[in-house]
Amino acid sequence: MSDTKNNWPLWEVFIRSKQGLGHKHVGSLHASDAEMAIGNARDVYTRRQEGVSIWVVPSESISASSPKDSEALFDPANDKVYRHPTFFVLPDEVNHM
């Protein structure tokens, strides 16, 4: 991962802000190894108690979908309205379901 300039690799940082919530991407940083990345993430991204748990992932390990595939990936879900509960009309007598 290191190149000739001895750059520390880039890591993406994900923070769980409190128990019960998922980890959310907050940004990136450089570190030579995973331990350092976690330490740096703690110092950089949780200075104001923003987190209870940290994930760090080498940026180069992330595979991302491409915007050019976004129509194929996401548009087909657009007409499946029956996946949303509001599609179904309930009899007036039934208040909650």
Binding site: W8, H30, N40, D43
Partner: peptide, 11 residues
């Protein structure tokens, strides 16, 4: 030596 370390030392 690195920006990240600046933050660590000041912490």
């Amino acid at each position: 030596p690195a920006l990240e370390e600046d933050i660590a030392l000041t912490n």
